[in-house]
């Protein structure tokens, strides 16, 4: 591990000022909160900051539910949010996505802000034995393209990077139309989570719209009739403590047995949490028992086929026309 200086600023504005000294990419100064991802990146020499700015005690960890919706403080842990009775009752997809993530030890430590900002699991990014990684070093190339890339993105990838976004929480939040409250030296601004992560294009090293020094202060989820009937389904190689091969977050606003409005996002297969408006449109008006309609709504056949060239064939098949929405609908006991 590269040696670093741990800064423990007394208040948030001091922390923002410290981090703002560094540039936007390959920053010699980085934030650390729960540290569950940062410690791995440090130990594997993926990140080598000169200084780490601790956010411990500087951000709030409140979980507030009101008529407007849900507000999660950036420092709330995954365990706190998952176990909150109002979150589990009114926004079950959030609770389920969190409980499907990591392990209890990690969930006790990891924060909301850090979860959304965690780095990709692409093995070529995590292994500095590979020189080529445009995320680590822009212009060095992408070793994952043409390599073993069963875990990589089939949606939103570019010729410069095919890394998938690993967060479960962010997929649930994108399905529910959540926003991120961003705080910087200039004040606070709100960004829709769907627009928060950037697609890799030709600058895969810049992953979010955060400016240097900015932090996530809170996440807000608007109240919506679909939120209560929501479900997170995670397909993975082992039953627990594993990242998703593919994971749909589905929220349904029901009109009797028919879907009035559907919100659907996919994890594990996109360069960022991937909302699928065409699937949502295809599901509107369909009945939960109408398996033909549900199958027809299965997403992204053509993009998946296109990306399968980059990916192992087997992985490309993962999101081909398998009726995972039909499967999710089997959990409709939760939705009624």
């Amino acid at each position: 591990m590269h040696p670093f200086i741990l800064e423990r600023p007394r208040d948030l504005s001091a922390a923002l000022a410290l981090r703002a000294q560094a540039g936007r990419d390959d920053a010699p100064i980085e934030y650390i909160a729960g540290g569950t991802d940062m410690m791995q990146l440090l130990q594997e020499d993926v990140r080598k900051p000169e200084r780490l700015v601790s956010l411990a005690g500087l951000l709030d960890n409140g979980i507030d539910i009101g008529p407007q919706g849900l507000r999660l403080g950036a420092a709330a842990t995954m365990a706190e949010v998952a176990a909150h009775p109002a979150v589990a009752g009114q926004f079950p997809v959030i609770s389920e996505a969190l409980l499907a993530s990591a392990s209890p030890q990690v969930r006790n430590q990891a924060t909301m802000g850090g979860n959304v900002l965690q780095r990709t699991r692409c093995p070529y990014f995590r292994d500095v034995g590979y020189a080529a990684c445009n995320k680590r070093s822009l212009g060095s190339g992408c070793a994952a393209i043409g390599g073993e890339n069963r875990w990589n993105a089939v949606l939103g990838a570019s010729d410069h990077c095919i890394a998938a976004h690993p967060s479960d929480l962010a997929v649930a939040l994108v399905a529910l139309g959540a926003s991120v409250k961003v705080r910087g030296a200039a004040g606070e601004r709100a960004v829709a989570l769907e627009d928060f992560h950037r697609l890799p294009a030709d600058t895969p090293h810049i992953e979010t719209v955060l400016e240097p020094g900015e932090v996530i202060a809170a996440i807000t989820v608007p109240a919506h009739p679909a939120a209560r009937r929501s479900h997170y389904l995670k397909l993975r190689d082992r039953a627990s403590f594993e990242f998703a091969l593919v994971s749909p977050a589905v929220a349904l606003d029901m009109d009797g047995p028919q879907i009035r409005e559907a919100r659907v996002a996919l994890g594990g297969v996109g360069a960022k949490p991937w909302r699928v408006p065409k699937v949502e449109a295809a599901l509107a008006g369909a009945g939960l028992d109408d398996r033909a309609a549900l199958r027809k709504a299965a997403p992204c056949r053509r993009p998946a086929a296109r990306c399968a060239r980059r990916r192992s064939r087997a992985a490309g098949r993962m999101i081909l026309p398998r009726p995972w929405i039909a499967s999710a609908s089997r959990s409709r006991l939760r939705w009624t």
Partner: peptide
């Protein structure tokens, strides 16, 4: 490419 226990899956209790 998966030479660590973060990416190499071994069975867990579940």
């Amino acid at each position: 490419t998966n030479a660590n226990f973060a990416e190499y899956a071994v069975p867990v209790h579940a």
